[in-house]
Design a protein around this nucleic acid. Structure first.
Lengths: 388, 388
DNA sequence: GTTACTTTGTACATTCAATAAACAAAGTCG
DNA sequence: CGACTTTGTTTATTGAATGTACAAAGTAAC
């Protein structure tokens, strides 16, 4: 049965629009909302009052008059609840509490010394408990936990395969729900990163974004027409295994010449084994490069060139407005950017490259955890339509 | 200003749902529509009566009773108007009249012996005049002309660049509008093909489809979440220039190792010049292959292998439900399919390839013209909201 | 300070689309 | 032939947005 329209739908649409207006302005009056949205003043009043009742908005006293009665300024109550966002990396867990606007309240990082499922999940649960204790009191409490993981996740929150962790079929959502009894959202780490950049980073208000998470491997999160694109079964975005050198090196995935063999940490480590990597190797290289080590700089240059090949493919394929290079490897921006851009200049189609901006992440290593938090927040609002 | 909800929006939504229901069933009664959509019987009655007034639906007498009063069967009035759909190829123009359901009423093909803009447009205009004469009388007449062209088209209907025609900056939409004074829609030939398959071919009811138009070059049309994905400036889908062999042959686009160098007619012709091709070379090869010419068969096998590399990239990237191989080259299916599929088996990620169907177009060479017609039809309904 | 004008936010009557329920029309079936 | 079904219309009701009027609370010019 299709979704038909009724008055309730209209109200929900308009209330969402009003709430968005409040969220997207630090402060705004009812009159201004009416003007900006085209909704009648009376309609806005009614909707705002309902939002006030649900503690999603509050009145912050009078604003500046522009020659008449002073407006009552409305603010989004970003402290109405708190989300937990987690970036489950290959050798670390970055976890944070954010408010409903994605501001980081508490942040912590644990190192992983074993990748066994049990050990990692133990550390993960410990971190979350720790964060929950530190969460401020609020109307709705901890509204959910979002987690970005480096692997393929299905719609039931099961990690089907996380090659760099060596995991298969881990029912993470179920495990965590039993422990915490709050809504859990599991997604691919690159999707989370893309979302983080779109919601709280440089990607705000941009409809088409490709986020490249370059680390041990390469994953991509694709925001197409303002939405994460997930594909038929939710596995889209495995651009790391795009063939860019058909007769190239053997990849552990079975293919040859995968992009990530040439443009991720794998290329730097000169080895095709995902597991036995040293957490600090990349940091060491970055330090060497910043000290002027030509051999290392050349390595980064080369990785930049290969990043550029993949980026060119992305430009020709998606004609996006923005490509963001994120992930651990993006810390080596200074020695990769030039070769990346010049490769794109050479390889991408003329009309396409003119309109695409290519930048390195400004949220840095936080984008995935922030995006995970935002997934939890969206999920909360989706599950609690009665509040909106 | 954002689009806010009002009662008018509700009505439009529900009327569209009702009309879709009529379109998607050969025959349907008011009661059945009410049941299937969840809309109240009275609501359906009102909306249907308005559709009757606008000649978009008509009553075809009583249907079979299931133990009570006989229902009045409703049919979509696909003869309310006619669309013209055109596939502007590199050496041919395929043009057709279709009814509003995409049934071909008249179809004709012209060969092109010169690619000069003036000559082609002259032939094009002649074809259209010819078709218009043959169009049946109807309530709304010729509701629009849709054209698929092998090049990059902007949102104003200007062909920015059509490499295989040797065209740049041709204001096709404007030229044709001045001639015919009916709405004109110009789009990329691969987008049109994808749409044709989605609306009238094997892609019905499938949300994510990648259509590969393999001819002189390779273009792709991408249906993502039920919509053609066009990217930021409308140039998305140039997968033909995706690098699959970074250190490969030089392409005329400036890049090296583009997919279409290995997996299109270009690979068969053993030459990288787009213009001096023979229209009948491909047909000749196909004939030779069907007569058992091993050398030619091997050529096709190899093209199939390279098609498989790109298809694997598409699978890993988009995780689509369906990949359709269309375009002129798809006529060589028998000698390419096996190598294509075995390449995908080897190269695409395990979880991804399981869920993606790969097929050769069943609409054959008609998909682009049909899709172009469907663009004209959609555009007509979008421009005439008052009818719905 | 007083008066005229502005701006904000609420109140109320009106409009319009969907709905539920009643009902008339036109069947089937034992 | 009478009881039951199904279809499609009619009518009163509900609820959301709207326009207008209005009260509240300000500014600014004289």
């Amino acid at each position: 049965m299709k979704i038909t329209g009724d008055q309730n739908l209209i109200k929900k649409m308009n209330k969402t629009i009003v709430l968005d207006e409040v969220v997207n302005h630090k402060m705004i009056s009812r009159a201004e909302i009416s003007e900006k949205t085209g909704l009648n003043k009376g309609t806005v009043s009614t909707l705002v009052n309902e939002l006030l009742e649900n503690h999603l908005v509050y009145e912050a006293g009078p604003g500046k008059s522009s020659g008449g009665r002073k407006p009552v300024m409305l603010l989004f109550n970003k402290q109405a609840g708190y989300a937990i966002g987690i970036d489950l990396g290959v050798n670390y867990i970055l976890s944070m509490i954010t408010d409903l606007s994605g501001n980081i309240i508490v942040q912590q990082k644990s190192s992983l010394h074993s990748l066994s499922t049990d050990d990692v999940i133990f550390t993960l649960i410990e971190s979350i408990h720790n964060l929950i204790q530190k969460a401020p009191k609020s109307s709705y409490g901890i509204i959910g936990i979002g987690i970005g993981v480096p692997g393929i996740v299905n719609d039931k929150g099961t990690i089907l395969h996380a090659p760099n962790l060596g995991w298969r079929d881990v029912q993470l959502k179920q495990i965590l729900f039993e422990e915490f009894k709050v809504p859990i959202v599991i997604d691919n780490e690159a999707n989370a990163g893309a979302l983080g950049e779109k919601e709280y980073g440089i990607g705000k208000n941009i409809k088409n974004i490709i986020y490249i998470s370059a680390g041990i491997g390469i994953g991509t999160g694709m925001i197409l027409t303002n939405e994460i694109y997930r594909g038929y079964s939710g596995y889209a975005g495995e651009l790391g295994h795009m063939t860019i050198e058909a007769s190239g090196e053997q990849c552990s995935c079975g293919n040859t010449g995968c992009w990530e063999l040439y443009a991720s940490e794998k290329a730097l480590l000169n080895q095709n084994q995902s597991f036995s990597h040293d957490e600090h190797k990349l940091q060491q290289y970055v330090q060497q490069a910043s000290q002027g080590d030509q051999q290392v700089i050349e390595k980064f240059n080369k990785v930049g060139t290969y990043l550029g090949i993949g980026v060119s493919n992305i430009i020709n394929t998606f004609n996006p407005e923005l490509i963001i290079v994120g992930g651990r490897l993006s810390t080596a921006e200074p020695w990769m950017k030039d070769t990346l851009l010049s490769t794109v200049e050479k390889r991408a189609l003329t009309y396409h490259r003119q309109t695409t901006k290519i930048i390195f992440s400004d949220l840095g290593t936080k984008s995935a955890a922030l995006g995970a938090a935002s997934l939890a927040i969206s999920s909360f609002f989706a599950e609690h339509e009665e509040l909106i």
